[in-house]
Simulated scan of single mutants.
Amino acid sequence: MDALTGLGLASSAGLNAWIPLLVLGLLDRYTQFVDLGPNFAWLSNGWVLIIFAVLLALEVVADKVPAIDSVNDVIQTVVRPTSGGIVFGSSMTSDIAGLTLGGQTATVTDPEQFVSSGTWVPIVIGVLLALLVHGVKALTRPVANTVSAGTAAPVLSTAEDGAAVLLSVVAVFLPVLVLLGLVGLAIGAWWLLRRRRRTGPPVYSV
Rank of each mutant, 00 (worst) to 15 (best):
L179G: 02
M1K: 01
V61E: 08
E112L: 14
G46E: 03
T151M: 12
G150D: 10
A17Q: 07
T93P: 04
L27H: 11
S90R: 07
S83T: 00
R80C: 06
D63L: 12
G6K: 01
L4I: 07
A149S: 11
W42G: 03
V183M: 02
I19L: 06
G37H: 08
N16G: 05
T151K: 12
L27A: 12
G188W: 01
L4H: 09
V78Y: 07
L55N: 07
D73P: 00
Q113Y: 13
R196S: 07
G89L: 02
V147P: 08
M1G: 11
Q104H: 12
W18C: 02
A189F: 04
M92N: 02
P38S: 09
V133D: 01
G89P: 02
I50F: 07
L9V: 05
L179E: 00
L99K: 10
L99T: 14
Q113S: 14
L167W: 05
L55W: 01
S205R: 13
D73S: 07
L55I: 09
V124E: 10
Q113R: 13
A153P: 07
A41T: 10
A163G: 00
A163Y: 01
T100D: 12
L132I: 15
W190G: 15
T109C: 05
W47K: 07
T109A: 03
S157C: 03
P20S: 00
V155S: 10
L99P: 08
L99Q: 12
G200Q: 02
L177G: 07
V79C: 04
R141P: 04
P154R: 01
I19K: 09
G200S: 08
V203M: 13
L9E: 06
L55Y: 00
V147T: 00
I125S: 10
T107L: 14
F88V: 00
A41F: 08
L55A: 12
E59M: 04
V115T: 10
A171S: 13
G181S: 08
S44W: 06
I187L: 14
G8K: 02
V121D: 06
S11V: 03
I50T: 12
A13E: 03
T146V: 01
I51A: 15
V34D: 10
V121L: 02
V65I: 14
S117R: 04
A159F: 04
V79D: 05
Q32A: 06
A13K: 05
A41M: 04
G135I: 04
R197I: 13
L24Y: 03
D73V: 08
Q104P: 05
T140G: 00
G37I: 12
R198E: 14
S116A: 15
R29M: 03
I75G: 00
E59G: 05
L180M: 00
R195E: 14
P66H: 01
P142F: 00
L132T: 15
L131D: 11
N45E: 06
T82P: 05
W120L: 09
G126D: 09
L22Q: 01
V206H: 14
I75P: 13
R195Q: 15
L27V: 10
A171N: 00
T199N: 13
N45D: 14
G150F: 03
V133P: 01
L36G: 06
G6C: 09
G46N: 10
A57C: 12
L21M: 10
V178N: 05
S148N: 01
A189K: 06
K137E: 02
N72M: 09
F114R: 00
